[in-house]
Amino acid sequence: MISVSLAQIKTSLGNIKENAYKHFELIEKAIEDKYDLIVFPELSLTGYNLRDLVYNVSLNQESDIIKKIKDYSKYISIVTGFVYEDKRHLFYNASGYFEGGEILHIHKKVFLPNYTMFEESRYFAKGDSFTAFDTKYFRCGILICEDALHISSILSLTRQDVDTVIVVSNSPARGIFEDSFYPEELWYNTLKFAATNLTVNVIFVNRVGVEEGITFWGGSTVFSPFGKSILKLPLLKEEVKGVKIDLKELRRSRIHSPFLKGEDFAMIKKLVRNCGDVDEY
């Protein structure tokens, strides 16, 4: 059993001090409540519509806020979102997994939406991999919002034998129809598909609050490898809530649905080569 807290929070745009303070409070509370892991949404330390503020709020391994989160991670594992500035001064939409006083992994968002209301690739550099990593509790990968909507991300993580996928997002409420709440439908289909067909745990944390007229819809959830939503946070409301994930469920689901057994990555390799997608140097 692993006890996970989903921090479905509002953030203050570009006000990194205030956001960090909120993180510290919630992390302390989660430690007190004996959680093993707390997951914050995409860009949880900065807010979303940053535009030119990207350059004012970036962090790296040496930043005080990052060091402080590393310290906290001696007592609880933490996933948090921030703007990562690398040594070349490229800026990434990133999410870090902190554990045992270290940063275990920084995922840099690969698929940066740049259409309709989005302008991420104007500001952010693109990550170039989906890398699985081992934590105290499971083998997992992090996907940031749009990443999860691409089949290549899920395929990459499956190939690397993950048992848990953490999806963090800043998904806006857009397209509200009488018969469907479009973003919720899109996301729950996506998450449920990943959970059932990869037979993995899926932890989804989406932010709430209004920023520049844009409402983020929340609805954070955890899907079991059987595709069952075992916790669902409310739409639109700030709430931090946890659930225990039964790690044994994975084995049961893979006996019940042994899709992985038949997976054929050699076939995919051949396909990619035949389609000319492999550089022949």
Binding site: S12, L13, G14, N15, G47, N49, L50, R51, D52, L53, E211, E212
Partner: peptide, 10 residues
Amino acid sequence: DFRYSRDWGY
């Protein structure tokens, strides 16, 4: 090229 959201800092 001076692009900020109105909710800057809020």
